[in-house]
Design a binder for these strands. Structure first.
Lengths: 190, 190
DNA sequence: TCTCCTCTGTTGCTTAGTCAACAGTATCAG
DNA sequence: CTGATACTGTTGACTAAGCAACAGAGGAGA
């Protein structure tokens, strides 16, 4: 199930996954995640329901995959996936998470309890992976687990807070204010 | 090859044809028809080149199909396919052909000699079929071939002329002026 | 309670799509 | 002229997607 992310693989598979993803993201803009059935997704994607199950275990797996793909794109756009720790990169990462969650809230119909929890788990996993990658590239051989965990939660918390505020002004200012608090946990290990 | 237009048929077939069509129409907006290769189409459509040949004999067959589909849509939009002869319907038909050709000229990159000839053949075939259908529904048992032919060429000629004029103003006025000249050939048989 | 209905996962067989390889044609440059 | 390159159209063996049918899990309502 989804073994190779973007290696050479059968074009039919790439195409089918693309159709499922697009269909799902369109549906998320219309309806609540809880009310979206696998049937809905496959109907809109013009594929058979059985085919869906050849690619994803269930709609929760699809959500995970979808979120991680979208977030990964956000990260790759800013080339944060191929770099090391720096104050500037950290700043960009926080910006990315804030913007991603904000977009999520404006694009998706009624964010629901369970839905948000699933997103949170997935995004934190991504952030943690990225930070670990950054820290492990440094000369310091200290294990990165603790500082990466702290920073991950801090960053997600900031972004969640930001994206939930009614009128979101001045993202730049918000991030600049928060940045040093997160940076202090990381720079000693980088 | 393309046996059933929109009967129940394998969703893979519908989907694949749709992908080929969209890809082709996008390409037409970018490049000259002559310079579009089957490879180009299949690359953009994300399908295998061999699959293309399972659906269309060559790119000329694709052009025919594409044109006829687009034109048919234009016709169905105005519900001209399910009606009989009347001055008003004829007027709408002329309008449809004019608008279709005009759109063709604005949407497609450099209309070329051969390209225009292929379109002309296809569209005239459609118009002829439609007019024959109208005339054969009338009580007059006279064969419709001759008047339908005359009107077909007249209508296409008008539309071609209109769509080639540099600044196209007042389509309505243009059609109202031309309408009686075409109508006189048809109404005696309807 | 029972039935009706909708959605979920799963299965074995069928069919469309993919692949790689082939021969044939055309164009272009050295 | 010759080799390189690019596109066409076709083939047979392989693989993903479609289908229809199934059992099962709720949920709504009489």
């Amino acid at each position: 199930m989804l073994p190779n992310p973007d290696e050479k693989l059968d074009p039919r598979i790439k195409r089918t996954r693309g159709l499922i993803l697009r269909s799902f993201e369109d549906l998320l803009a219309e309806k609540n995640f809880e009310t979206i059935s696998v049937q809905d997704v496959t109907d809109k994607a013009q594929i058979n329901r059985a085919t869906f199950y050849a690619h994803f275990q269930d709609k929760y797996a699809l959500l995970d995959y979808s979120i991680s793909q979208m977030f990964m794109q956000e990260i790759e756009k800013r080339t944060l996936n191929v770099c090391h720790y720096s104050s500037d990169n950290l700043r960009n990462l926080i910006l990315a998470v804030c913007e991603f969650l904000s977009r999520m809230h404006t694009d998706c119909a009624q964010p629901h309890q369970q839905f948000e929890a699933l997103i949170e788990a997935q995004i934190k996993q991504q952030i943690f992976g990225l930070l670990s990658h950054w820290l492990e590239q440094s000369k310091s051989k200290v294990p990165a687990e603790i500082p990466a965990t702290v920073a991950t939660w801090a960053i997600y918390g900031l972004a969640s807070h930001y994206s939930h505020t009614k009128k979101r002004p001045a993202l730049e200012k918000f991030v600049d204010e928060a940045l040093p608090l997160v940076a202090v946990n990381l720079e000693q290990f980088a």
